[in-house]
Design a protein around this nucleic acid. Structure first.
Lengths: 253, 253
DNA sequence: GAGTGGTCTAGACCACGCG
DNA sequence: GCGTGGTCTAGACCACTCA
């Protein structure tokens, strides 16, 4: 006897909370609206604040919420689609490039980068920092590694570093003919410097897009671009990409 | 006066822990090795278990660790590259397809899917479940939505559902000529059913790849594929993709 | 049944944004 | 200075795996 199937599968509280909050967001809140603070919400649902925060973290990961210290928790707008396919993420420095050069230094790259560039582990390479803005918000920070062999002549540039030199490097890069490129996308967490540029805390989830540019039969440049995972949807291919958002617990049944 | 710059920037303990552990993983541990349990580790570093767990979560997100309840925490192998570019993630059912058909039912899709398919919100569509295995491990679960208009004739199939019917649907789909496709990648969290298929807990981070297949001037099929974010690196483009792993706190300096 | 990671609690203090 | 989210603690119990 007893209850039929009440709590037959005791799912975690935070997961149930996530579902409840998702439905509330869908029906009762508008984009940009401020939610009650965490202490109030926790009390309202009768859970500890840590448990509530676990649910909010999920929702932030899914791009449904935005939390800012000292401000509050707001309903996030739908993710913006950023093109990383053929056209927009093309040969760095090409016309129509969506990136903005920030800085350029000559530095020894991480070992993993050196391996791909087939350069000595301690050989310095030109390291260009660029940033990408979409809809007024910073969406990505990039480090572009360019072996000195890829740029013919930088003697006309007097600046040893800075945005001017970065643009000069990109200009020189354009003299090479791009043969092909390939990319990989994986999940990562923002390093301190990237986090700052993306207006997030260190460790924030990011989508790391690594692109290798091939010219003259070798790797002419390597781009490691860090996109905010909470606000971005990376689009590939012919058209603009698909607008789909995950539904809560909706399976084929 | 006082101390020069000791703790001038008090970074969070869990972040510092993450860095320390990353370096330890790089130098002192082999892939597959089992770490001390969380209680021991926390005691060794003089922090609460919750703080230690926060660091481990980061490392798991970055694909460095693998944690399994009842077993322990092990050092994860490098992420496997899975191709989602042109060839392998091509027209479903084409020869060389890496997917395995699991099931097929006729069901009403989520509203967001119906919108893309340009079908009525309550119109059922063929929903094919497929799974993808790489290196012996399940890496992705897919729901493929196929409007009935896309498949000419299923009358020869007596099974109302199941893997046999799924394969029949894919076979019929091949009769259409694929015009183009576009994809989008975004971060999500695994629904209960996907989590089970991917051998993870609900809410685990996943990379959601949404692909729209265009044929006959309309959307002939829509694929929503859920990849394990901890173990997968999605590769696009001409070659096999780049093998880069994020280095801890290594900036151009 | 012993040992593991997963969940949850009820507190405390800190860093930040804003008025 | 106040309210927010972010960090941290020291416990407890649960779910799972495996010998």
């Amino acid at each position: 006897m007893g209850t039929t199937q009440l709590e037959a599968v005791p799912e975690p509280k935070y997961w149930h909370l996530r579902t409840v909050l998702t439905e509330a967001l869908d029906s009762e809140f508008a984009v940009g609206e401020i939610l009650p603070n965490e202490r109030d919400l926790a009390a309202r649902f009768g859970v500890a604040r840590a448990t509530l925060r676990q649910a909010l973290e999920q929702l932030e990961l899914e791009g449904r919420l935005q939390r800012r210290r000292g401000v509050g928790t707001t309903v996030a707008p739908p993710r913006v689609g950023v093109a990383v396919g053929t056209e927009q993420h093309a040969w760095p420095g090409a016309t129509g490039d969506v990136w903005q050069a920030v800085d350029c230094v000559l530095a020894v790259p991480p070992a993993s980068v050196a391996a791909v560039l087939e350069s000595a582990a301690d050989a310095p390479v030109l390291t260009v920092r660029r940033s990408r803005v979409s809809h007024g918000q910073p969406v990505a920070a990039e480090l572009l590694y360019v072996p000195e062999a890829s740029v013919a002549d930088l003697s006309g540039i007097d600046a040893p570093s800075g945005a001017a030199r970065a643009r000069a490097v990109l200009r020189e890069l354009q003299r090479l003919e791009l043969e092909s490129q390939d990319s990989a996308v994986e999940l990562g967490s923002a390093r301190a410097d990237d986090a700052k540029e993306l207006d997030r805390l260190p460790g924030a989830p990011v989508l790391v897009v690594t692109t290798r540019f091939l010219a003259d039969g070798r790797t002419a440049a390597l781009s490691v671009a860090t996109y905010r995972a909470d606000t971005c949807r990376l689009t590939f291919g012919d058209a603009g990409g698909v607008e789909i958002h995950q539904d809560p617990e909706r399976a084929a049944s």
